[in-house]
Design a protein around this nucleic acid. Sequence first.
DNA 1: ATGAAAGCGCTAACAG
DNA 2: CTGTTAGCGCTTTCAT
Lengths: 362, 362
Amino acid sequence: MARRRQAVTIKHVAADAGVSLQTVSRVINKESNVRPAMKDRVQASIDKLGYVPSIAAQRMSGSRSYLILALNDRERTIADWRARQGTDWVDQMLFGGMLKCAELGYRLIFELVDTHNDHVERELQAAISALQPDGVILTPPHSDNPLITGLLRKQKIPFAQIGSTGESGGIPLIMGDEGAARTATRHLTEMGHERIGFIKGDAEYALSSWRETGWIAEMKEAGLPTDGLCAEGDFTYDSGLRAARQLLARDPRPTAIIASSDHMAMATVDVAREMGLEVPRDLSVVSFDNTPMTLFTRPALTAIDQPVAQTAALAVELIVAAQRGEKLPEGPTIVPATLIERESTAPPARRTDTRRASATSQ
Amino acid sequence: MARRRQAVTIKHVAADAGVSLQTVSRVINKESNVRPAMKDRVQASIDKLGYVPSIAAQRMSGSRSYLILALNDRERTIADWRARQGTDWVDQMLFGGMLKCAELGYRLIFELVDTHNDHVERELQAAISALQPDGVILTPPHSDNPLITGLLRKQKIPFAQIGSTGESGGIPLIMGDEGAARTATRHLTEMGHERIGFIKGDAEYALSSWRETGWIAEMKEAGLPTDGLCAEGDFTYDSGLRAARQLLARDPRPTAIIASSDHMAMATVDVAREMGLEVPRDLSVVSFDNTPMTLFTRPALTAIDQPVAQTAALAVELIVAAQRGEKLPEGPTIVPATLIERESTAPPARRTDTRRASATSQ
DNA sequence: ATGAAAGCGCTAACAG
DNA sequence: CTGTTAGCGCTTTCAT
């Protein structure tokens, strides 16, 4: 086993530029106390030799590892991978997080943790000890896990909490779930829908209740009832089936349903079809998440897009800012979610409604 | 900026166990020359203190970084992420690669490179210098990029080449593309199809021609013609549209088409529908890749599954084995791809064929 | 503004 | 089998 050494080290650069190690180090770290002429000379040597600092060595002596850990729920992530249904969550996390990291000279490390396990602390501590990350990104449903946030706070590692309002001392980021639910509801009320059902997401996720709150608020403002129009779900297709059956069994039937996940929306479409209803003619469906499947189902689903990539990028930015001691925004950073109109929504068919000219929205 | 030190170091363990640093190191690295009693004592201290070695420090002195780099094409990966179509490639790479790494005490780092760029070498060298990985996984279409393989060979970093037969000195792994194409073809010939079209993949990928070869070989063995039944494609939906139009314009029309990607298969289904043909009644379609969309299209696509996760896991295993100086298998490791039968294939309709009883295969 | 010295946590090489 | 010594490449003091 040959001992592999760094090809070009700071020493080589120092020798080549005829300066001390410190000066090179200062240039690398963009410290201010280096004369421009000196800096240029050193930079020239760096470029010439193709020198890149070793992260391991930087971490050994300094305080930064240039590593950011993105923590995700192991069980759920693996289940998604195994199902091969392409939820796109991981991809979008990497898309936003990795690229932003690269931009800032950091590196994103994707990591799984057993949230439900008592060993979370041990497991997380192991990852931290091994990697010494400069920051951690927490994702639902464990953005507020006190075991995790407590550990990070104690170790003074900056952490972003996606989908949390941030009572636990991290940097909170939310994807505007309440507003998104209002947007979805308004989209339907403006088309003339009055009985709009809502299928909740997994109660373990804080965003599930935010979405419900948004729906209720918007319905109230429109002067529409919500009693009996809310069904329980847990994001899965099967739970969507149950919830949709429950809602569509009502008399009068809802003319539209908002589902808190694409899978539950797909289940709703399937239940409707089973009952002889056509989407969107007899039932409009709006889903949450905008995962790839919304493109391939027929009709394609009108969905609330979760700006996962953008949120991950922002999380990285804020962590780096925190790490540098910069001032952070006050409350939670809200990344607004937008509605993508596809083919599953239309004005209600059987109402006396002047807007029913076109059956499908564009 | 507080200087963050390791909470528990090898020193603490050594002190706690009353032994030298070296002994602890030996226990960590599972070296054989430690007496069981001693080893147990040290292990007890490790467990008690919750000690985890710092990979930065391990890398600094030793020869291993316990990091494996998975290299992917930047342009294509980002395009996929942006399109949000959930190709699942990244997920499956992580699924297989990350979990296997975790199992072996390694960590997978997902990295993007600009293959078409002249800076590949510089870029890769930078990643290697910064991370000092113990191994690298190369993925199509750059598994055989001589700039990359040359660099890795020179630095004596073990590397796996997914989708390559390994003339460049790496560890070759292929997903049995030729056999898979034969399987797909046989699936159709056994149903009674005689005019089976084939849509090629991007010529930049070696596997594109392997698949073509398999189709030709199987057709030949069945005594069926292939002339004029092969159309160019590049994996994209649009290229699939063109290729399908070309094939279906022939007279007599093919009764089945094998597409080298799911997107091209979906395009084929759309073209068929446009021409008033019903899938699978009038045209059977088999696709390659088995990405999530095959589940959501109607009809759901019969597809050749690419065992990406399994291949990535094997790549990690082989790299670690190489790193440890173990002996590797001789030729390319072939991970067989399997056919997943869904709804897009059926016996041809207009033939005098005894097997036409059921219109759709299960 | 620049340089010299002292480690960071760990392992390779060598003793005993 | 176990311990000692000398760095790995870099950044942090502290001098100059």
